[in-house]
Design a protein around this nucleic acid. Sequence first.
DNA 1: TCAAATACATAATATTCTTATGTATCTTTG
DNA 2: CAAAGATACATAAGAATATTATGTATTTGA
Lengths: 113, 113
Amino acid sequence: MIYSSELLKGTLKTIVLKLLADNKKMYGYEITQKVKELTLDKIQITEGALYPTLHALENDGLVTTESEFIGKRVRKYYTLSPRGKLKTKEKVNELADFMNTMKFLLDIKTKTS
Amino acid sequence: MIYSSELLKGTLKTIVLKLLADNKKMYGYEITQKVKELTLDKIQITEGALYPTLHALENDGLVTTESEFIGKRVRKYYTLSPRGKLKTKEKVNELADFMNTMKFLLDIKTKTS
DNA sequence: TCAAATACATAATATTCTTATGTATCTTTG
DNA sequence: CAAAGATACATAAGAATATTATGTATTTGA
């Protein structure tokens, strides 16, 4: 199963931040592969979604970047800034809370109010 | 806490379908209030999001409607069609699965691959 | 009586994704 | 050794789905 695309909406930024928190330093393509691997292909981040998201995180000062040459090809590493680390905790907590709320909503068997 | 707005994206349709599955017959305003109540004000569905969603469900044949007059004011009830019931199960299962995957992603402590 | 709540709806705008396209290098395999 | 596939970046057009604003109207409660 691959999830219908709308589910990812609103969670991509949090996923990226969390991966950076766990892995210190990652580059874009690596992030797509890591997510694909960890989710057994259920979540496949497209490049058209990822790169703009990474650029937005950089503009917001949540990550810093450093480019490295691997042969002749450039590779752009992203690292969380101190503010990025705080933001990650907030976003992860919020998403965890949201999922608990959703779990409750989806399990309710109440027939009347 | 009220969740940042992007989290709701992609889950609204599922929430509405699930509520209709549990309560047989509901009208729009009632749905907004029920969600607000069940989530302790954490999720507040806006009318601009809800009504187009309900209309889309109707166009897709997932719900049927019947209007009723309460005094001089109209109230439009929504009920799941047979296809809507099937669709609800699919969507709820998919979202539950997605949340498990996200839970795993957010909990991982792996430092390297 | 007048504000707040109930009840519907739509339009303009914003956000955030998909899909398509572009460029270029590196690696594997027949 | 050529060609396909993987690696690696990026942006633009379009779609989907929400917010915010606006509109209409009735009912309720302080």
